[in-house]
Design a binder for these strands. Structure first.
Lengths: 203, 203, 203, 203
DNA sequence: AATGAATGAGGATTCATTCAT
DNA sequence: TATGAATGAATCCTCATTCAT
């Protein structure tokens, strides 16, 4: 069944394109990134990229969604760990540090889409943000259900959690802080998040 | 003395260019923004813009610095108000809400410069971020001096304050939340910030 | 083998561009010449020209070198003919007349590069001039070896030959003299050249 | 009578503009030369130049005519000296060397107009060339009248004289030859010219 | 399916020229 | 008369996209 092999080869090419796209978009931004360079680095012809993605914009969006899937999985995994909510939020913070470190291209391009200015991608970015918040809100609701925290506005609280953890990592990286010095803040940030949610952290 | 009039007219034109530049850059990003459109909207000829700014990049940087000056003044004013640290941080949060509301172009373009991927402005953006942090750090040090808070790493703490307040507002706006609903979170956010800094807020 | 066809088509396009470039550059000079017009006249798209030449400057230089190759071949052929040195110099003069007549664009643009002020091409123009002189000097040396002429400074003599023949044709054309009236001077010019070289022409 | 003073000041300014124009045009060519730079170097305002010359083109032409007047005077002076025709032609050659040396800007820009490609100035350049030839032709006719030379076509002969003397100097300078080495060829060139004109030089 | 040669829209920038002062 | 701020026409070049092979 050559079909499966072809299917696999096709998917492999698609992934290669997405990876190189993340690299270029993270390096240069949407406008400065060059489709030809992405194709070349992906080892395919200039025209071939259009057999996989409709145009530059769609490639960017596909890459964004691909990254979001991975990040969401990380967020979910961090929040699904055993332990108190505080410990799990600390894991969330550490997850962001890890993502920023291990695949900085993806992290940067994702943050740029969220907070960047290009209105062309605002709708998609909003969707991403909502996905992230939904995952966090789910965990918060479970914690509220078992009386671990008290909060009336789950959505607002989820945003507090996300803002503090994610944007702290982002800003710290912009400032050039080392992974170590950022990691050292993990428990402090987790404690801060928790205390703001309406329960004094497990003293 | 026509000189003064000329000087005033010149400065007025400069400000008009900066305002329209903020509008265009916020709407389309650096690359997609069109110098000709900015000139047209500012009511001047295409070439005239180059009598005020060396090139597109310098116009962008000038605009960024101009915005930063205003934002810094707002941050300073908020943190200089009478009251407890918690109250002042609440004012800081409200200041960000106000800036985002009253001049959303400036707020967006400023955030974009900080968190966007355009490497061309990273150095300048980092400088802005450091300026913001310095202002916050100064206030925190004063509070620590009078025993209001306990914290060893002032810089990290300042980043926590900024991350939570500023990026909360940014994200909430991306989500389309109303000014009212964001403002309602003011005291909660302030309390969260404070509790993370090492002192239980004035219960 | 489509490769050969492609290669041929490509070379044909290249030649078409060079020909039209010579036309435009001869008509308007380097600065006033319009790349878009050259492309249009060559029957290709605006961008296509950049698949063949890096930029306007490189196109100009390529055209110059292409012309120089042809002119050098003509000079060589004229000087390689059978006959006395005087006869061969008369052939050289006639060669210039022919070049100026048959491809006046190339002749004009070539002269312009040599004697124009555009410093940007001075280095290249000097190289051309030296190539021309080298060819003439070679012939003069052979003539000196067989005692046909006497001269100590071959290089200066070569320049006398070139100056008189080439620039006579150029000036005569500027004055609007007909090909016939210029050709009529051929033997006179050749005799003049020879007599200056240190031997009375075969009376 | 302030009128005269004004008249003098005006003429002085005009000359200053022409001098700087020659410098810039010789340095950069017509298109690359910058009117603003010429004005600045002439110590006047940008707009003032248009009180003296209609536009860039007219300024160039005025400069060209001004240079031509000086060169013509030199040519006339050289040919008016006492001595044989051969001696006077040697003086002509030396005059070109001197002009090229002492006011290379003018020499270059003048040559460029004559042999350059810019058709916009072809008519004017032709007029210059004809003026030069007329002066030479006049002298040749006198020499023929007294039997010093024999030639039927005075105009063609004049062009031979001019081509050899002027373009030899021009080419030699393009090649970077020193004034000394060029001057050393003076008598050889003069003899060559003469011998070509139909009389054996005074052996 | 894959390729890459060809295309042409789009835009920052320069600078000759004008004109209000 | 002199000025220089303002103007906008003019153009090279890039690069996303198409399409014949």
């Amino acid at each position: 069944m050559p079909k499966i092999v072809d299917e696999q080869a096709r998917e492999a090419t698609r992934q290669r394109i997405l990876r190189e796209a993340a690299h270029e978009f993270a390096r240069l931004g949407f406008d400065q990134a060059n489709i030809n360079v992405i194709a070349e680095r992906a080892g395919i012809g200039k025209g071939t990229i259009y057999l996989y993605f409709e145009n530059k914009r769609e490639l960017f969006l596909a890459m964004l969604r691909s990254i979001a899937r991975i990040h969401l999985a990380s967020i979910r995994a961090a929040l699904a760990m055993k332990g108190t909510l505080e410990q799990r939020i600390e894991q969330l913070f550490r997850a962001f540090i890890r993502l920023a470190e291990e695949d900085s291209d993806s992290f940067n391009v994702s943050m740029s889409a969220l907070y960047g200015v290009n209105r062309a991608f605002q709708a998609e970015a909003t969707k991403l943000l909502q996905d992230y918040l939904a995952v966090i809100a789910l965990v918060l609701e479970e914690s509220r259900a078992i009386g671990e925290i008290q909060t009336t506005n789950i959505e607002a609280t989820a945003l507090q959690v996300l803002s503090l953890t994610e944007s702290y990592v982002l800003s710290a990286r912009v400032l050039g802080w080392s992974k170590q010095s950022i990691t050292r803040q993990a428990s402090a940030v987790a404690r801060q998040v928790l205390s703001g949610i309406g329960i004094h952290p497990s003293s």
